[in-house]
Computed example of a mutant assay.
Amino acid sequence: MLARLIYRSVSKQPSEADVADILTASRRKNRMVGITGALCHLRGAYMQYLEGDEAAIECVMAAIAEDPRHCSLSVIEYRLIAARAFSQWSMALLAWDLEVDAALGPLADMGLFGIPPDQAAPAFRSLSKTSRWSEL
């Protein structure tokens, strides 16, 4: 079955190098197991949207949970879905700017941990309409 998982975590030592390493590894591994999704990184926090086969998502999350670059990891949504929202991206990264702030509206001021769990998927869908995603 096709599933969606959204999690948040805190970066133990936020750096551009860590984000680049996470993207490189996730893009390579996600393509191999059929996972697609998107990653936001803001002020030392991550929020990631994963979609794919349930078993593949469970394997990916087990690896993320063991990744020493993350702490305070929490799954904020896990559900079965009918279709992918990010089928074109093995893992895209959001470049935060004023366009993204406008798309999030009042949620932008609260940062990634301020987004209520029931608003995480809608927030990602709103953000997906911005031009600030990179799949380089």
Rank of each mutant, 00 (worst) to 15 (best):
S9C: 03
S11F: 06
Q13I: 01
E16T: 07
E16P: 09
D18R: 01
V19N: 04
T24Y: 11
A25G: 11
A25Q: 13
S26Q: 10
R28M: 09
R28A: 11
R28Y: 13
N30F: 08
N30M: 03
R31H: 10
R31I: 04
M32N: 06
I35S: 00
T36L: 01
T36S: 15
G37I: 09
L39W: 04
C40E: 01
H41S: 14
L42C: 14
R43Y: 04
R43G: 15
G44M: 06
G44N: 05
G44I: 08
L50G: 07
G52W: 00
A55T: 14
A56V: 04
I57C: 02
E58Q: 14
C59Q: 14
V60A: 15
A63C: 03
A65Y: 00
D67P: 01
R69V: 12
S72E: 14
L73V: 11
L73D: 09
V75I: 14
V75P: 00
I76V: 15
Y78S: 13
R79G: 00
I81H: 12
I81V: 15
A83T: 15
R84D: 08
S87L: 07
Q88K: 08
S90L: 04
S90H: 08
A92C: 08
A92T: 00
L93W: 07
L93R: 08
D97V: 10
L98I: 01
E99A: 15
V100N: 08
D101E: 15
D101H: 07
A102V: 07
A102T: 14
A102N: 13
A103Q: 06
L104K: 04
G105R: 12
L107T: 06
A108S: 14
D109H: 13
M110N: 15
L112K: 03
G114N: 11
G114F: 08
I115A: 05
P116C: 08
P116R: 05
P116Q: 05
P117A: 14
P117V: 02
P117W: 07
D118M: 07
P122F: 02
F124R: 04
S126D: 02
